[in-house]
Design a protein around this nucleic acid. Sequence first.
DNA 1: TAAAAATACTCCATAGGTATTTTAT
DNA 2: ATAAAATACCTATGGAGTATTTTTA
Lengths: 304, 304
Amino acid sequence: MAAWMTLQELRYLVALVDHGHFGRAADACHISQPTLSTQIKKLEDQLGVTLFERTNKSVHVTAAGEEIVARARQMLADAEAILEAGRRKAGPLAGVFSLGLIPTLGPYVLPWLVPALKDSYPKLRLIVHEDLTAHLLETLSAHRLDAALVALPIADSGLEALPLFDEPFWFAAPRGHKLAKAKVVKEEDLRGQRLLLLTEGHCLRDQALAICGATDAENGVEGDFRAASLETIRQMVATGMGITLLPAMGLGDARACGIAVRPLDGGIGRRIGLVWRRSYPKVRDLHLLAEALRDHLPRGVRRV
Amino acid sequence: MAAWMTLQELRYLVALVDHGHFGRAADACHISQPTLSTQIKKLEDQLGVTLFERTNKSVHVTAAGEEIVARARQMLADAEAILEAGRRKAGPLAGVFSLGLIPTLGPYVLPWLVPALKDSYPKLRLIVHEDLTAHLLETLSAHRLDAALVALPIADSGLEALPLFDEPFWFAAPRGHKLAKAKVVKEEDLRGQRLLLLTEGHCLRDQALAICGATDAENGVEGDFRAASLETIRQMVATGMGITLLPAMGLGDARACGIAVRPLDGGIGRRIGLVWRRSYPKVRDLHLLAEALRDHLPRGVRRV
DNA sequence: TAAAAATACTCCATAGGTATTTTAT
DNA sequence: ATAAAATACCTATGGAGTATTTTTA
């Protein structure tokens, strides 16, 4: 392969075709006429084809040149498109960003996060994946996510985490429940209690179980019902089916729905953080995202 | 425009995506690993986009990279196509060659010329334009022909000519004509004779008129009939409508058709040559074509 | 003869190499 | 501890410049 063809040569080629004059084409390329001459000649040598028929009054493309010039134009357009693509994706939080988050965060975080980001970073195309923590971390490691919002801590050593906020859990019970009037609910009050829980895989389920010191097997209420969302659980509590722990953001208008909610003693809750691959290149974007998250936290959570 | 993007960089980019490993990609490109590293980094800087997420165990394209790589592949394919186009058009008499020739040569030259060229130069795509000399020379000057076969001499100073062969004219008359039995026909025998001629614009018409010393206005037979082809004229002579001069190659089976043909005294005839623009770049091709023409001359003409 | 392209050289920016350091598993 | 990428530094090819010659309309 005797000396590769160059994009620059093709630019010169096209300029010469367009101007039909070495001097003017050289000006257009901001090079000298001799440089253009030698570069065109070099290209002709590389291709083994005479591209131009020259006299001192005219420079005319040959038939062979025509086809080659057409392809050269295509290539230059593609080159321009690459630069344009770069421009589109450059800048802070620009282009596609795939964010994963757990289902117990989605309904409460996204409604304010998405507009806030759209506002601050108009070039951002945010893609949201709502899934269980385990799946999120897998997908993240497989480079199919840029980052994820999950409850900390996480085990994976290839990942890095930035704590964002602490979200307290609240005790939720039907109006008549014996703890419904307590000032605060203590951890020992919960010990051994059976809770309404989400389906397996939700980290919130595991956290709640851990708090009341129960294993998965021991728990279960009303035919071992497992809810798919916090909203469902809230409905179940309201109709007197049982008690549960709700994260602060999930309380919503619980009180208005006839549910008694009591704070938990001792700061029991979960810590939510942003997680990404250690090797993820756009760390600045991650911190910008984290900032945006922390700047718009809803009431009931403490930024950290 | 801070330092233009390079095809080479794109080759490296694609290689790195394909190998997912700097060392192996560098090997594939026959460069060192540090060179690849710096070139990739340079490209990233130029585009303002991080193209790869690196760890010491893996190199993974970013989302931004994916789109850019796709375009890069397209560009490299186009580059390959350009080289291929060059290869196709390289070599002696390869690719399209547009040859013009006058109508009084076409029917007699093409039947043997085309197969001969096809045989000697399989990569040649010969395109034939049959037209009057004036039009041919115009078209030639407008770069729409590569060369033309015409009767010499020609006036145009921007063109160059190579004589190929001399083609004698023959006197042709109906059987009973007074000159039909002459050993040779002399120029003075023709002086003032009225000839069957082709339509205006054919050089053969002008040459014949010149030989018998007549102007265009003085000539004309049988209601000033003007034939579009030599074949027509031959038919007219056979049916006794008049006499004419025929170029050697146009005699065909004239004798068998009841026409008397007699040689002309003094080497009266026309000189056929190949004509091209002085600036035409592939002079070697022209001489190869001339050689092919001279090597296959039919009987009745003398190469020169 | 005048305008344009081709040559002849000089220079330096940078692609590429070697040696080494840094990094991450 | 090791494999791999990044960095430092050096070399030299060739892109680009200026000056000049050659060409041809």
